[in-house]
Computed example of a mutant assay.
Amino acid sequence: MEFSKMEALLEKYFEGETSIAEENELKEYFSSSNVAEHLEQYRPLFGYFGEAKKEKLTNNVMLISKKRKVAWLSLAASVVVMLGIGTYTYFNANTVKENKELGTYDNPEEALAATQKALAMLSNHVNVGIESVQYIQMYEVTKNKAFVE
């Protein structure tokens, strides 16, 4: 009778459904000398807790204060940010000067041609977007027919 009760408790234990009192009962059972042979394999699992209580920490552990870690971390982060800003300004200083000259034409015919080219490119992209919207509308109509009817 007691063996079947222990088997049921073990099953509940492995399912994670035991209470603290039931787990203590399992620990007491497996620490005793009256353990069934087929349950002997679980003895080290429950015997570990008793042995772990006996262990004591003998080494002194040096603790590093969090203030030092935070100070080094903030210093390192500020250095990285400063390097990033410096690198960005160094490599992008010339590109800003080149872009200032864009968009100005002395000849009106050149300006008209450039404007027409830009508008044609814009029109092509808008047409592609409209085609995509038409596919979506066709999909919506087909979906409504399929799911409503």
Score class of each variant (00 low, 15 high):
residue 67 K to E: 14
residue 67 K to S: 14
residue 67 K to H: 06
residue 67 K to T: 12
residue 67 K to G: 08
residue 68 R to E: 10
residue 70 V to W: 07
residue 71 A to P: 04
residue 71 A to R: 13
residue 71 A to D: 04
residue 72 W to E: 02
residue 72 W to N: 00
residue 72 W to V: 02
residue 73 L to E: 10
residue 73 L to K: 08
residue 73 L to F: 09
residue 74 S to T: 12
residue 74 S to V: 15
residue 74 S to W: 00
residue 74 S to I: 11
residue 75 L to Q: 02
residue 75 L to C: 13
residue 76 A to W: 01
residue 76 A to N: 05
residue 76 A to L: 15
residue 77 A to L: 14
residue 78 S to F: 04
residue 78 S to V: 03
residue 79 V to N: 02
residue 80 V to A: 15
residue 81 V to P: 02
residue 81 V to S: 04
residue 81 V to L: 15
residue 82 M to W: 01
residue 82 M to C: 12
residue 83 L to W: 09
residue 84 G to W: 10
residue 84 G to H: 03
residue 85 I to H: 00
residue 85 I to E: 02
residue 86 G to R: 04
residue 86 G to N: 05
residue 86 G to S: 14
residue 87 T to M: 06
residue 88 Y to M: 10
residue 89 T to E: 08
residue 89 T to F: 14
residue 89 T to W: 11
residue 89 T to C: 11
residue 90 Y to C: 07
residue 90 Y to L: 09
residue 90 Y to W: 09
residue 90 Y to S: 13
residue 91 F to Y: 15
residue 91 F to S: 09
residue 91 F to L: 13
residue 92 N to W: 03
residue 92 N to E: 06
residue 93 A to D: 09
residue 93 A to T: 08
residue 95 T to Q: 13
residue 95 T to I: 09
residue 96 V to K: 03
residue 96 V to R: 06
residue 97 K to W: 11
residue 97 K to D: 00
residue 97 K to C: 01
residue 98 E to P: 00
residue 99 N to A: 15
residue 99 N to W: 14
residue 100 K to V: 11
residue 100 K to F: 08
residue 101 E to L: 11
residue 101 E to R: 06
residue 101 E to T: 01
residue 101 E to S: 07
residue 102 L to R: 05
residue 105 Y to G: 00
residue 105 Y to S: 00
residue 105 Y to L: 02
residue 106 D to R: 08
residue 106 D to Q: 14
residue 106 D to H: 13
residue 108 P to I: 01
residue 108 P to L: 08
residue 109 E to S: 10
residue 109 E to I: 15
residue 109 E to G: 05
residue 110 E to M: 08
residue 110 E to R: 05
residue 111 A to N: 03
residue 111 A to Q: 01
residue 111 A to W: 09
residue 111 A to L: 10
residue 111 A to H: 12
residue 112 L to G: 04
residue 112 L to R: 11
residue 112 L to I: 14
residue 113 A to L: 14
residue 113 A to N: 10
residue 113 A to Q: 07
residue 114 A to M: 07
residue 115 T to R: 12
residue 115 T to S: 09
residue 115 T to V: 04
residue 116 Q to P: 01
residue 117 K to L: 15
residue 117 K to H: 06
residue 118 A to T: 15
residue 118 A to Y: 03
residue 120 A to W: 08
residue 120 A to H: 11
residue 120 A to Q: 13
residue 120 A to Y: 13
residue 120 A to F: 04
residue 120 A to G: 04
residue 121 M to N: 11
residue 122 L to A: 15
residue 122 L to K: 15
residue 122 L to C: 09
residue 123 S to A: 06
residue 123 S to T: 14
residue 123 S to K: 10
residue 124 N to Q: 07
residue 124 N to I: 07
residue 124 N to V: 02
residue 124 N to L: 14
residue 124 N to R: 13
residue 125 H to F: 05
residue 125 H to R: 15
residue 126 V to P: 10
residue 127 N to E: 07
residue 127 N to M: 12
residue 128 V to D: 10
residue 129 G to T: 02
residue 129 G to Y: 05
residue 129 G to L: 04
residue 130 I to S: 04
residue 130 I to P: 06
residue 130 I to K: 06
residue 131 E to I: 05
residue 131 E to Y: 00
residue 132 S to F: 00
residue 132 S to T: 03
residue 132 S to K: 07
residue 132 S to Q: 06
residue 133 V to M: 12
residue 133 V to E: 10
residue 134 Q to T: 07
residue 134 Q to A: 12
residue 134 Q to Y: 03
residue 134 Q to W: 03
